[in-house]
Design a protein around this nucleic acid. Structure first.
Lengths: 194, 194, 194, 194
DNA sequence: TATGAATGAGAGTTCATTCAT
DNA sequence: AATGAATGAACTCTCATTCAT
């Protein structure tokens, strides 16, 4: 039952952070939304920042794990690339709440910046690992693979942000987005959006 | 002379926003840094948010203009692509302060989010325009070009953020980064960076 | 068994009050130290203040009783005086915890101030009674004896506080302190203390 | 004009601390009494504790200075003693506000305890110095003089507290109190009080 | 134009106390 | 008798903004 309230608080906070941003959201908003008393917040979190850090950590970790599980082996590099991009878009789509909070509203605290930095480091490592299996990048150095990895992350993140958050598109766009990003226009499945 | 003080305020604010973020920086910090009195701030700006909006607008507009001027026509698509990417990296490098402020610290105000959104819309248009000149994208639809444009923006922005802000590399890395991103490993000019 | 917990609470509270003062000590500190649950506190005490009042009353009453039992009759006034002072120092030494709590940390509640006031009234009466037996004070009025009594109390309390609490000296200093206070330097047993 | 408000705050605080104690007095009480805004408090003091520390320091320093100026040279030790005691009672009477605050209400903060400890150390030194001039204490060691000094301080403080604070007597009692404390009953000027 | 003391609404946080189990 | 999660009133403190000079 105790965990009930903690969960209420987290759900309420995520909703409010997404809607109005971290700084605009007051503890009093969160507890009202969660239906608990003001003091209850402090049973579960040391402070507002502590709450956000723990939520962000959990969400970002989820993304890292989800990306890691996307390991597939297909024939061509292009197929691998496509699947990687699609998988990443799926994961971002499922986690667009935290994506929106962090990208649109930011947070601005040393500690949380650290969480974010660590997150990017982790997914970069995951992507770099995947790239090593592609023939195309066979003779790339570690540093060069890192550049490629980050550029792919940026690509996916920006597209995900623009389509899932700004344009608020659904998961049915994922295939088309991935196809275009990878560069195969074949039989175009891409329909006008919004 | 009055403009002197306004400029002092802007420079002080940019420095502090970059260092500690928008929310952490107090008006009192800015005026102390700028060497003017507390009340003077309000002679030049309606509010703290108003100041940030105007600074952000100016900086982002500068980026848009700089990107637009990069229009050059070379023989191959790959050359065009490389030059576009390099140009974008240069521009981001020159403007890494605002890049850092917006990406690392975020903003958290509806109005400023609008500024940011409009900025991305503008540079997307610039990039899309440039892509139309590449043979490679001849039969892409507008929507498809938009995806490509955003994915390129994301690529450049993420790489610029990681190398110029996180790793704090200088402009001498630009060529190498651009080359790798575009995919030409030719005579590799890329050196290990730390 | 119930009384066990009550006693635990009292011991824990005394320790914490002495260490950090009444106001700084939280109920949660006391119950943690006592090894009981938060709610258990209220089975034994109406409130934090009620607890402190009852502890203080008990301790101070102990001091009063101890002082009363010191009644001895010796030949000279000086001997009586010395014994009275020594006895008082002993008592204060044994009760330095409450002495420290009340003198160093104060109290700050009307009700408890009353307890303290009543305590001084009581020991004043005890001392006054003792003084009546000394030839030296034969023709002193009641009011005058009261002044003498309070001045002796102040003397002993201040010395006890400085030596037992501030300098943290042990009971071996008592004789020397009493001798000096009374004014007999005879064969000086007093050693340098640090 | 700025100092006006600071002074208002100090006067209001002293009054309230005396009336209801340090812990019971809220910042909101102080500013209301002083007739300034809540935020104004923080222009002059870092916190409530900081305020009290600075007030206490000033008051206690005043007492030390006042006691130091009492240096007089009379014929007999008894005369010197009497004058010292009377002077001390006068000083305590003039400063009974801070005496009441510290003795009755206490404060309970490490930092302020330090101020108080330092105060006693200082007046002990003053008294010890004075005692050295008395023939009576010619062959007392430093340690022994310290005991005498503290016992005299305790005497005066307790009597001052009981008569000036508890019984609320005026300065006309000072002579009589001093006389009794010193031990001369001569032509008794002491009248029944209140 | 420039000042900076003053403001006060409103934020985050604390903690003695309660009560269903 | 014992628990400890939950409470919420009340606190201290912050800081963007104002305005008399």
């Amino acid at each position: 039952m105790g965990e009930d309230k903690k969960d209420n608080l987290i759900q309420a906070a995520l909703m409010l952070f997404e809607e109005q941003g971290y700084h605009t959201t007051k503890i009093s908003d969160i507890v009202r939304e969660a239906g608990v008393a003001q003091g209850t917040f402090y049973l579960y979190f040391k402070s507002k920042e502590d709450m956000f850090r723990s939520i962000a950590e959990a969400c970002l970790e989820e993304i890292v794990v989800a990306l890691q599980q996307g390991g597939v082996s297909k024939d061509t590099d292009e197929q691998k690339d496509y699947l990687m991009i699609r998988r990443a878009l799926e994961v971002y789509h499922e986690n667009k709440t935290i994506l929106k909070i962090i990208n649109r509203h930011g947070v601005g605290s040393q500690e949380i910046a650290g969480v974010s930095e660590a997150f990017y480091q982790q997914i970069m490592m995951v992507i770099k690992q995947a790239l090593r299996d592609e023939a195309m990048y066979a003779n790339y150095s570690e540093d060069q693979l890192e550049i490629i990895a980050f550029s792919k992350i940026g690509m996916v993140e920006m597209v995900a942000y623009q389509w899932f958050v700004v344009k608020n598109c659904g998961s049915e766009t994922i295939n088309a987005l991935a196809q275009i990003i990878v560069g195969d226009l074949g039989p175009c499945k891409f329909k006008a959006m919004e």
